[in-house]
Simulated assay, not measured.
Amino acid sequence: MRRSVLSITLPVQGRPVVHTVEVKHGGDPQYGVVRAGLYLDGYLRLESKLPARFPVADGHIEVRTGKGGMRRCHFVADDGTVQRLVPDPRSAEGRRMRFADEHPAASGLIGAVSILMLLIGVGLNLLQIAEPISQIPPIAATVGTFESPLQLPVWLNLALGFGAVAGAVERGMRMRYHWLLDSGAGT
């Protein structure tokens, strides 16, 4: 089971308190529901199913996930300022962030490949969905039928599908989200 651990230090009654959010992406073993826990200085204070909004001193913490990982984990202050929580260095997000800091060129290349894989996945899905939808009698009578110009072998379809999933997971580890890319291709 993969988990995300992100933290931020906020003042509570004049002293710094570490606020940590933990999300077990596989879900609660007993109920199967994905939940987030809010820890203050290492002690569990609140739990909620996702998406979650935890009230904290001077604001709240918003937590959302997608199928590929974390989508949002931010502190929103009462004055409207937003600050992203920092991933634990040992978590997948933390290791990805460290890799991006230590190897920016390689990280950029991986990011570009993940976007490319998602775009290919979305494009292929649209082509493959358009053909059977266009054959529904009322749609066929109105706009005609569509025959996909691509007839890919099953192994290539599967490989591109796995590539899209890998791209979605990589974007989830970097906490990147775009409604078109990530909602349509696995996150």
Rank of each mutant, 00 (worst) to 15 (best):
R2L: 04
R3E: 15
V5A: 13
V5L: 10
T9F: 03
T9V: 09
L10G: 11
V12H: 15
Q13S: 15
R15A: 14
P16Y: 03
P16W: 02
V17W: 09
V18I: 06
H19D: 09
V21C: 09
V21R: 14
E22S: 10
K24T: 05
K24N: 13
H25Y: 02
H25L: 00
G26K: 03
G26S: 12
Q30W: 11
R35I: 01
A36E: 05
A36T: 01
A36F: 01
A36Q: 08
L38N: 13
L40N: 13
L40G: 05
G42L: 01
G42D: 07
L44T: 04
K49R: 14
K49W: 12
L50E: 11
P51G: 05
A52P: 03
R53H: 10
F54T: 11
P55E: 15
P55D: 15
V56A: 06
A57W: 08
A57M: 08
D58V: 01
H60I: 01
E62H: 07
V63A: 09
R64S: 09
R64I: 00
T65M: 00
T65Q: 03
G66N: 13
G66W: 02
K67A: 11
G68C: 00
M70V: 04
M70G: 07
R71V: 00
R72Y: 10
C73Q: 11
C73L: 03
H74N: 15
H74P: 05
V76N: 14
V76W: 09
A77V: 02
D79R: 09
D79E: 15
G80K: 10
G80F: 01
R84G: 04
V86F: 08
P87K: 02
P89C: 02
S91L: 02
S91T: 05
S91R: 06
G94M: 01
R95P: 03
R96W: 05
M97W: 11
R98W: 09
F99C: 12
F99T: 11
A100F: 02
A100C: 07
D101N: 14
D101F: 05
E102K: 11
H103K: 12
H103Q: 15
A105M: 11
S107T: 03
S107K: 06
G108A: 07
G111E: 10
S114T: 09
S114R: 08
S114W: 01
S114E: 03
S114L: 02
L116N: 10
L116H: 11
L116C: 08
L116T: 13
L118H: 08
L119W: 05
L119Y: 04
G121S: 09
G121N: 02
V122S: 12
V122N: 15
G123F: 07
L126N: 14
L126K: 13
A130I: 01
E131R: 08
S134G: 14
A140T: 05
T142Y: 15
T142S: 11
V143T: 12
T145L: 02
E147Q: 15
E147W: 07
L150I: 08
L152S: 10
V154Y: 08
L160H: 10
G161F: 07
G161L: 07
F162W: 14
A164G: 13
A164W: 02
V165N: 10
A166I: 03
G167L: 02
A168I: 00
E170V: 00
G172L: 00
G172I: 00
M173W: 15
M173H: 15
R174L: 12
R176S: 14
H178D: 15
L180Y: 09
G184V: 06
T187F: 02
T187R: 11
